[in-house]
Design a protein around this nucleic acid. Structure first.
Lengths: 191, 191
DNA sequence: ACAGTCACTCATCGCATGTTGAGCGAAGTG
DNA sequence: CACTTCGCTCAACATGCGATGAGTGACTGT
């Protein structure tokens, strides 16, 4: 009668509550960031004792690490399309349905050192991918500006929740951003 | 022999230490954000007792409020130039020498509710100023995207401190961003 | 059915933080 | 010089946090 009073193997039950805790953690980290999210709050949301969270993840930092770690398959998906299409894809991924994992990460990137590292690493990855496809000079700088630009839009839309951006249609945003990105990348795929 | 062992009037002396505390607070808030900045740390940096900080500002929240409040003259400067020039001006202001006040505000905007409100308010102000000058349809949306874009670059450069952006010359960045902004605003001042 | 395992809870600790009030000593005032 | 004012410090409190370790009861395999 603890929670899942079904015939579920013990190991699987444990794995499920672990996932439930992780989901609660992701949600709260995404809402309030690292510092303002307490283990107690995560436990409450997961309908579990705070101590259990510790038993599962060892420490708050480790919980956070697990919460913001993208499944590395999720990270590397998205093939080798044309540049701007790729960028709009990033925009789409980041805007259409940004994963709770990403939001948790982004929310804390300005205040939690490791989150910042993680974001910088992700940026570097995208940057390399993009800059290789830019023919113009200053390819790296252009790529960095491009990524930052997209980051800004994502922040405005999902973290700050600026009304105008939140209400706007994803496709319309992508449409408006396209020439902007083309300009930054040296217009590889002009309309 | 406390600190300024000169013939300084008492009121002025108090005002000076208040300013010293405020400066320390701004620096720390800009470095670490609201939650990770402790009153004790501010006091230490200002070479002052923690209790004195309370006596001056009443609470940590009030200290933060004072630390992130732009002097309202500083906010409204920058005349009515042509649109893209204005934007590049914002870029310049935000990039060349971003004030500690702004950095303190920006650093906490994702985790501190009031900081978020403040940023959104500032964004709305800029948004109105910009959208009025855009002739294309979706003026508001375009303006919001423009502001978010600049926000992203500022974050990447000064908060995340992405290497490529930090090392880049301000003018070069402005130069690269110009066509991008023109595209977003409907190219009002084409080269 | 019995013993052991294991997911989970309870009570509690240590610590850092924001905040407070009493007190000190130098600057100001008559 | 007496007396007050006031900028400032010291010691302490209350709270909420992450973290710990002993305990409990249900599930498991034999």
């Amino acid at each position: 009668m603890t929670r899942n009073s079904q015939t579920v193997p013990r190991s699987q039950r444990r794995a499920r509550t672990a996932e439930r805790i992780l989901a609660a953690a992701r949600a709260l980290f995404a809402e309030s960031g690292y510092d303002r999210t307490t283990i107690r709050a995560v436990a409450t949301r997961a309908e579990v004792d705070p101590a259990l969270v510790m038993q599962h993840f060892g420490s708050k930092d480790e919980l956070f690490r697990r919460a913001i770690t993208v499944s590395s398959q999720e990270a590397d998906e998205g093939g080798q399309e044309k540049l701007v299409e790729l960028l709009l894809g990033i925009l789409g991924v980041k805007m259409g349905e940004v994963s709770g994992t990403s939001l948790a990460l982004l929310r804390s990137m300005l205040t939690h050192p490791e989150a910042a590292e993680q974001v910088k690493a992700a940026n570097t990855r995208q940057l390399n991918q993009i800059s290789g496809a830019i023919e113009a000079e200053d390819a790296e700088l252009r790529a960095a500006l491009t990524v930052s630009t997209l980051l800004g839009v994502t922040i405005g839309r999902h973290l700050l929740e600026l009304d105008v951006l939140r209400e706007a249609d994803t496709e319309r945003i992508a449409e408006l951003m396209k020439p902007c990105l083309e300009a930054l990348t040296g217009r590889p795929a002009q309309s």
